[in-house]
Amino acid sequence: MERIELDEAKLQGQAEIWRYLYSFTDFIALTSAVQLRIADIIHSNGGAATLSQIASCISDGHTSTDITALARIMRLLVRRKIFTIHPPSDGGDPLYNLTHSSRWLLHDSEQTLAPLVLMENHPWQMAPWHYVSQCVKEGGTAFKKAHGCEIWDLASRDPDFNKLFNDGVACTSKFITSAILSGYKQGFNSIGLLVDVGGGTGGLISEIVKVYPHIKGVNFDLPHVVSTAPAYNGVSHIGGDMFHAIPNTDAIIIKWVLHNWNDEECIKILRNCKKAIPRENGKVIIVEIILKEDGSGVFDDIGFLMDLVMFAHNSGKERTEAEWKKILEGGGFSHYKIINIPALVSIIEAYPDA
């Protein structure tokens, strides 16, 4: 009996390795669905479409869609519960339907992850993964080993990559912003001037100002980033470098920025934040993942995947509360509180030491 259990465990272990070995195919199938706009096709067809209907919409009129290849991709995505398939009541061809997952792949939705899927699958983003083990042996940044420069340098000189990166980041900003506004309702009431450090093209600060019109908003990022930012009512765009100085303000919000940098760099940014806000009633609103090593929440596992993304793409990392406490103290913010919001990230409200 013990021998049978050992054999079953060994087979299960083998199956697990097979699964991890080819788990990249899940991502490729998902990316294909986004590139082919399959979710959009089903959505525009009233929420259900046959394989032939999907294929005809994919065809651009110059080529014929390989419906067999499409069927194979859809078969895997149905198994992964990205789409569902049901026989129609009239006995015709099976119908594919959207799920809660595939609705996040709609290109024109306010809540979409499609641009992030396209960004992460781009060869520029995939290449660094082949250097991860080399970084373990030698140190350094995988992205730089792959491309000869840091990710920010490539974005500053390559407009196509800059747009790809900004679009990927901006799509997450929309629904995380919604979570911030719903979970941090009282936090903005006493703020007159708010600077969004590393605010990208200004999506977050524009939404905050829209809900709290008494706030004067400043979107602060690198010059090549703010140069592509649209105009928003109540928001000024300022180009600069957070490692040198941050505009003086009542409060700072810094969303998904510190995880891009190592501890020493984060401390330098936080010290500049401290210089920019008043000692009394000033605060920094940090929006980041907080790793929970034994966490079983809906997003807790994603944090550890994101940590390796940081490892591959820059010198940053995701952090536990103890790790956040260390850099906050180093930056001059010994006092803080954590506010949970309905998102992958949490809010750390930090107050400057006297």
Rank of each mutant, 00 (worst) to 15 (best):
E8Q: 10
K10D: 06
L11Y: 04
Q12K: 11
Q14C: 01
T25G: 00
F27C: 05
A29C: 10
A29V: 04
L30S: 13
D40Q: 01
I42H: 06
I42L: 06
T50E: 03
Q53G: 06
S56A: 10
D60I: 10
D60S: 11
S64W: 02
T65M: 11
D66M: 04
T68W: 13
A69C: 03
L70Y: 06
R72H: 14
L77G: 14
R80M: 13
R80D: 12
P87Y: 09
P88S: 13
H107P: 01
S109F: 02
A114T: 10
P115H: 07
V117E: 10
L118P: 11
E120C: 12
P128F: 07
Y131H: 09
V132R: 11
V132G: 01
V132S: 06
C135L: 00
A142F: 07
H147M: 03
C149F: 01
I151V: 12
I151G: 03
W152T: 13
L154I: 02
S156D: 01
P159T: 05
D160E: 13
N162E: 11
N166R: 15
N166E: 12
V169W: 00
V169G: 05
A170K: 08
C171G: 09
F175D: 01
F175T: 00
A179I: 00
L181Y: 10
N189W: 02
G199R: 02
G200E: 11
V209G: 05
H214A: 15
G217H: 08
F220A: 06
D221E: 09
L222G: 00
V225I: 15
V226W: 00
T228C: 07
A229G: 08
P230K: 08
A231S: 13
G234L: 07
S236F: 10
M242N: 08
M242D: 07
M242I: 05
F243I: 08
T249E: 06
D250C: 01
D250M: 00
I253Y: 06
H259S: 03
W261L: 09
E264L: 14
E265P: 05
E280H: 10
I286D: 02
E293T: 05
V298I: 15
V309F: 15
A312N: 14
T320P: 04
A322N: 09
E323Y: 10
E323L: 06
I338P: 04
